[in-house]
Structures are given as C-alpha cells and as structure tokens.
C-alpha cells in the first residue's frame, strides 16, 4: 500500500505530522496517533461519517473529502467535520404528499439558494448538488432523486452553503416521497419480506451466529457484491 520510505507532511488541526505517503487521511491520522471515535464509520466510503475539509500548501482552494477515501498529499492542512449541525425535520411520510411545494414547505431556506455551486464543489460523491437543490425548488421530485441517488449524507455541502441550506435533507425527503408515492411497492421487496416472515432464512442466520470470528471474516472478505 504505502511506497517504501516515502513520507509526507500533513497538519492535523494545525499540528505537524510526518506520515507515509499513500495512506488515506484516516489511516494517516491513526498512524500519527489519533484515536478516532467520531468521524469514522464504515471505512469504505459509504456511511458519510468521515467528512473532512483540507487545503494543500500553495493553493487557495478549500477542498472537501471523505477521510477514508482521500489519500494524503504533502502539505495538507486537515480538519475533520464529524458532525453537521442540522435540525432533524419531522414529517409523517404517510401524511405528506408529493406536491410541488412540498420542499419549500419543509425546507423554506432552499428559496435562498444562490446557484453558487459551492455545494457541488464540496461533494465528495461528485453529485450535482446545486442542480438537485434547484430541482427541489421547482418541485421536480424525480430529478432530485436522480441527481442525489449516491448521497451519503456526509454534510459537507451543508457546511459550505452560504445560503445555510442542508441539501442532503432535502434530497432525503425527495427519495422518501419518491419511493412511497411514485415508485410504489416493489414486487421483489414484498416477496423477500414474506420469505423473511415465513422463516426462510432463520436456519442460515443461526448457522452464521455459531461461526467462529475467523471464519466469519473469511466469508465477509470473499463475499460477492451484486449491483
């Protein structure tokens, strides 16, 4: 993984560290002695817990990344953003409907969007965040879903937005409405739920529970991921 011998300098919250080149920000921080308790989760780029802001020496750009994905660069100034202060909006998905003003009703601050595109520049998932916020503003639920599908709610867009919008919450509402009212129930899911209820997988689960950890790890590592 790391190239023999080559070291780079990074600054974690202002403190200088020499770390092997080739490490991710997360591993480099652990190498430097940090014990991560917040700001870490899946370590695989899916959970969004490891949001990080950084600048690299010589560049004015304030950049955003996932610490578990981004490889350190020489002269990186790093700060983790393990949490985005954002209010959890409450709504009852059974009661709200996919109306054109549904986004404005729950997130009226989207009317402050400047189309500055700062959110898109921040998104480590390379989503067109500005475009989905704008689609939400005009009530285009399908477009929001299409553009935000890979959002992992890392919160980086919300930290950077000058209009104080929390884009990922808007996108989440869109996906919820979409699945509930537009897509409808999927046959496969219904079938699988029935199978689970009938106890089709009970035995397999019991077997798994009894496996020793090494065997579990082996199976996990050799698992097949189907997309």
């Amino acid at each position: 993984m790391e190239k023999e011998g080559k070291m780079v300098t990074i600054y974690v919250m202002g403190k200088k560290h020499r770390v092997p080149a080739g490490l991710t920000i997360m591993k480099a921080m652990e190498y430097a002695g940090y014990q991560l308790r917040r700001g870490v989760g899946c370590r695989g780029g899916f959970c969004g817990a490891c949001a990080t802001l950084y600048r690299v020496k010589g560049s004015y750009k304030l950049q955003a990344a996932l610490a578990c994905q981004k490889v350190v660069e020489d002269g990186m100034y790093i700060v983790q953003i393990p949490f985005t202060p954002a209010e959890k909006k409450l709504y009852d998905i059974e009661k709200i409907r996919p109306t054109p003003n549904v986004f404005v009703e729950h997130f009226p601050e989207i009317t402050r969007c400047l189309s500055c595109n700062t959110c898109t520049k921040a998104c480590p998932q390379d989503l067109m965040v500005m475009d989905y916020v704008q689609a939400a503003l005009r009530g285009d639920i399908e477009k929001v879903v299409e553009l935000s599908f890979d959002c992992i709610a890392c919160g980086l867009c919300a930290i950077r937005c000058p209009a104080e919008i929390v884009p990922y919450q808007v996108a989440q509402l869109a996906r919820r409405l979409y699945s509930k009212y537009i897509l409808g129930l999927s046959e496969e899911v219904e079938k699988r739920v029935a199978e689970v209820e009938e106890g089709k997988f009970d035995e397999e689960l019991e077997q798994l529970k009894r496996l020793p950890p090494e065997e579990l790890r082996k199976r996990y590592e050799s698992r097949e991921i189907r997309v």
């Binding site: 969007c113 400047l114 189309s115 704008q134």
Partner: peptide, 23 residues
C-alpha cells in the same frame, strides 16, 4: 436551468447574486 434569483442585485459590489442569472 436554475432559478435566476428573481431580483437583480442592485448593490454595486454584489457579485454573488449575479451567478444565478449568468449560469
């Protein structure tokens, strides 16, 4: 397309609010 912002920013030093229509 994006919302143009609906009003032209009148302050002479304002740049931010012109991004939307220029896009």
């Amino acid at each position: 397309w994006n919302c143009c912002g609906t009003v032209h920013a009148l302050a002479k030093d304002d740049v931010m609010h012109h991004l939307a229509p220029v896009r």
